[in-house]
Amino acid sequence: MKTTEDNWLYTISSKHKLIDLNLKEIWRYKDLLFLFVKRDIVTVYKQTILGPLWFLIQPLFTSVIFTLVFNNLGQIQTGDIPPFLFNLAGITAWNYFKECLTGTSGTFTKNQNIFGKVYFPRVIMPMSVTISNLLKFGIQIGIFTGFYLFYYFQGSGVNININIVLFPIYVLLMALLGLGFGMIISSMTTKYRDLTILVGFGVQLLMYLSAVPYPVSEAKLKFPEWVVPIVVYNPLTQIIEGFRFMLLDSGTFSWTSFGYTTLISVVIFLLGLIIFNRTEKSFIDTV
């Protein structure tokens, strides 16, 4: 009877579609995304003396320790590449993934205060974490470049590979994987917190299975046979290995494994997005 009354803008209902992304709405909130990124960057150094220097200290110290333990003590071979540079490259890449994963895996539990009061597309929150981590990653890549040039002019066998053009794609893959896993974990921890405990040490263990402190060739040589596929088919291994290949020209690269990694990352990301979207509707009741 009232035809004009049926032009509802939107409906709040108990039923949802499987994929309810609403990109238009995310676009409407793009300013919020950048303000969150700005907030994360601006507030992280507040009331510290060394400020952003902390971003450099952590990978440098880790690399030194890794070099001491794995290369000096453990006799892991890194070919022509200085072990320190090898470790620094791996750790820089790994750190970005790890920060994205841990930063987003608590999205629902950490933000329940704000999520419980106002609505905005929840996915803005993990996206902003991923973007603000880029800055940290950039600083760490900067310090890596410094050491790289140092070793380069010393003539110690490091060469840039043509694959360097893939650099942005590798960063994107790491972001997608970290964000995807993070969203899955954050959705699954809204009701039962068990996974939070797993993430704490799981990420640490995952690093050792992702060829961070060693090249894949060494793993194939020295690991027990049943472990080798875990390392090789781990998408993160391929990312780390490919990352080192393009920066240092060490290790292996194949388009097949690159394609495989890309596929896995996109699938994980989409899966994360779907689960996240389903959870955001009423997680506040169970969190």
Binding site: I12, S14, H16
Partner: peptide
């Protein structure tokens, strides 16, 4: 912030 168990709101 949360969705209803049943029913819907149109706006």
């Amino acid at each position: 912030v949360t969705s209803p168990t049943t029913g819907e709101i149109k706006t």
